[in-house]
C-alpha cells in the first residue's frame, strides 16, 4: 500500500516537475481560457442581466475546452519518447500511474481555474469566491480529470489522437458538466442547499464511478 502511494506521488511529482520546468502547457491552457471567455463575451453579448445567469455555463465550457489541451498533452508526452514503456516496466500496480496522472491533470486544471476565475470575476464584476462554488469547482475538476485521463490514454494510441479525444470525451462528460453548471449557477444565485444537493450528488457519483472504471480498465488500455 505504501508502495502504491509512493508510486502515485512519484508520477504526480514527475508530471508537475516536467510542467514546472517548461510551463508550456499551463501557459497555453491559460491563454486559451482567457481567449474563450473573450469569445463568449462577444458571442453572448454578456451584459449585466445575462451575466448572472450564464457565468457558470461560460466558465465550465471554458474549463472543459481548455482541459482537453492538458489531457492530450499528458499522454502524448509519454508516447513521444516511448517513456510510457518505461513507466509500464516499473514494478507497481498500473492503476497507480492512472491515479498519479489523474491527480496531476486535476492540479493543472485547478491552476488554470485559479488564474481564470479572478480574471473573470474582475472583468464581469461577479463574486465567484464563495466556499460552495469552490467546492463544486474542485469536485467537478476531479471528475473531469478522472474520465479525461482514461480517455486520453486511449486516444493517445489511436492514429488521430488529437482529433479523437474531444469527440470521445464530451459525450461521456455531459452529465458532470450539466450537474456542475446547475450546481454552480444555484450557488451563485444564492439558492438553498436543498436545490443544489441533487446536482452535487451527480458530480460526486460521477467522481466516484469514473475512477473505479479507470482503476479497472487502465491496465487494459496501456498493455502491449
Amino acid at each position: 500500500m505504501v508502495n502504491y502511494f509512493s508510486a502515485l506521488f512519484s508520477i504526480l511529482r514527475k508530471d508537475l516537475a516536467v510542467e514546472w520546468r517548461s510551463r508550456q502547457l499551463l501557459t497555453a491552457m491559460l491563454v486559451f481560457s482567457v481567449l474563450i471567455i473573450l469569445i463568449f463575451n462577444f458571442a453572448l453579448e454578456l451584459d449585466a442581466r445575462l451575466r448572472a445567469e450564464v457565468s457558470a455555463g461560460v466558465l465550465w465550457a471554458t474549463f472543459a475546452f481548455a482541459g482537453t489541451l492538458g489531457l492530450n498533452r499528458s499522454m502524448a508526452i509519454e508516447k513521444e519518447h516511448s517513456s510510457l514503456d518505461g513507466l509500464l516496466l516499473a514494478p507497481v500496480d498500473r492503476s497507480a500511474i492512472y491515479f498519479g496522472k489523474t491527480t496531476a491533470n486535476t492540479v493543472f486544471i485547478l491552476v488554470v481555474e485559479l488564474f481564470t476565475l479572478p480574471i473573470y470575476a474582475v472583468l464581469y464584476n461577479v463574486n465567484l469566491f464563495t466556499p460552495g462554488f469552490l467546492i463544486v469547482i474542485i469536485l467537478g475538476s476531479w471528475a473531469y480529470s478522472a474520465i479525461g485521463t482514461l480517455l486520453a490514454a486511449m486516444a493517445a494510441q489511436a492514429r488521430n489522437r488529437e482529433l479523437l479525444l474531444p469527440v470521445l470525451l464530451f459525450p461521456v462528460l455531459i452529465p458532470v458538466l450539466v450537474a456542475a453548471v446547475r450546481a454552480s449557477t444555484g450557488i451563485l444565485d444564492g439558492l438553498e442547499m436543498v436545490y443544489i444537493w441533487p446536482s452535487l450528488n451527480i458530480i460526486i457519483a460521477y467522481g466516484l464511478i469514473m475512477p473505479v472504471l479507470g482503476y479497472m480498465f487502465f491496465d487494459l488500455i496501456v498493455k502491449d
Partner: peptide
C-alpha cells in the same frame, strides 16, 4: 485486437454515463 478492446471499454464507459445524463437533466 486493440480496436476491439478499446471499443469494449468505451462502450462500457458510455453506457455508464447515459443513466447519469438522464438523472442530471431530470432534476
Amino acid at each position: 485486437e486493440r480496436r476491439a478492446r478499446f471499443g469494449a471499454i468505451y462502450a462500457l464507459l458510455g453506457s455508464a454515463s447515459v443513466p447519469l445524463t438522464y438523472m442530471s437533466i431530470r432534476i
